[in-house]
Write a protein that binds this DNA or RNA. Structure first.
Lengths: 209, 209
DNA sequence: ACATGTGAAGCGCTTCACAGCG
DNA sequence: CGCTGTGAAGCGCTTCACATGT
């Protein structure tokens, strides 16, 4: 339990959480070997990762599944509530708005925004799409802390700046472009086509062996 | 030009490609400093990354933008065609089927599949949704090499195995679960909620400072 | 006996700093 | 002179191997 959890460990914690969920409920403990197998990593890595959170494994037995899940959730801040807004309600924005997987992790979608007047006023998953001019007011009244950018590439930078101006400090960018992070804002990129390109690289490699 | 491009470099190549696209067309060359600024990385890293592909920068001038784009596309295999199938046509599958960003990079969607008989036969973006039993035949006749899994978590493992049995060697898994890779298959995971959890970690960290 | 927690070694990526070249 | 290409140093993560604890 301390101030330095390596970045790579932070990225693996959600994976461990996922694996723990998939575990048979007949089981109370899990060993680093078993968890490593499920997560597709080395057992020593599992132990080292978990040791950053504290040391709540039991030697000769393993980790208590419930306790481990809870500790990871605490560490990731998932016991808190993180209201989320989505800007750009096209196909992807709509899919994310409907994505049930968010709610049960403390990520509640509290606002949908779009620049297109034709979309404003329509409902998606129980929420009314608002115009961009409402962004600041809405973010502040709903205390939103995370923004998802699902606009076209051309609008992404401007959108990020509007979100920053509205007080958002964390952005997930789904638009197929690289955004310059406004001062004090943490941006992560999810680029669907980047992932395909990485697959392509290895396919290409294999093919030309 | 050689056999060992580091994994991390492969992951950055698509980012560089994105940045090059955003460059003003009045410009013919780009320096490692400028590209680094756009991509949000260290200039030396840009130079080292690009040096793995060959050495086509010009000292004192920079990299020819067109040439660089072409070389990266070659290296990533984007000059080839990679037919893609999607299994699981819910909100996300539909969004991906409609996502235009794939086509212009050689990723052509050639098949849509769903287990739900009510969906089979419907059209999405010009393609008819097929039943799973057609998977193998369709993958082989269309020479598909990449499969996107957008099923519910519970069906993801089985879907991956069907894809593998049909001859697919590369899978992008969007289902919120960790899949065990079938023999000889390369799996990459895109987990929307994992990314949110990483943001959450750092928000949580900041908040408790 | 068995599985965790962890120094220490190993490995790969990042960054520096400068030689090389247009 | 300016910017690339790259040895070499630095750094952080991974993995090993075993002491530690139950």
């Amino acid at each position: 339990m301390n101030a330095t959890v390596p970045k790579v460990t932070v990225q693996r914690l959600p994976v461990y959480l996922r694996c723990l969920e998939g575990l048979s409920s007949g089981q109370e403990h899990v060993s680093s070997d078993q968890l490593a197998e499920l997560a597709g990593v080395n057992p020593a890595k599992v132990r080292k990762d978990l040791s950053y959170l504290g040391s709540f494994g039991v030697r000769g037995v393993g980790y208590g599944i419930e306790h481990l899940r809870f500790q990871i959730r605490i560490e990731l801040g998932l016991e808190e509530d993180w209201p989320v807004v989505i800007v750009g309600i096209g196909n992807l924005g709509r899919a994310l708005a409907n994505y049930a997987g968010f709610g049960d992790r403390g990520f509640n979608i509290v606002g949908l925004f779009d620049a297109d007047p034709a979309k404003v006023g329509k409902k998606v998953d129980g929420l009314v799409i608002e115009p961009l001019k409402n962004l600041k007011r809405s973010v502040q009244s709903k205390n939103a802390s995370i923004g998802l950018v699902t606009t076209p590439a051309a609008a992404a930078q401007e959108t990020a700046e509007s979100l920053a101006a509205a007080g958002i400090r964390s952005i997930l960018n789904f638009a197929p472009t690289v955004i310059a992070a406004p001062e004090g804002v943490d941006i992560r990129r999810v680029d669907l086509s980047t992932e395909l390109q990485v697959l392509s690289f290895y396919l290409h490699r294999r093919r030309s062996d």
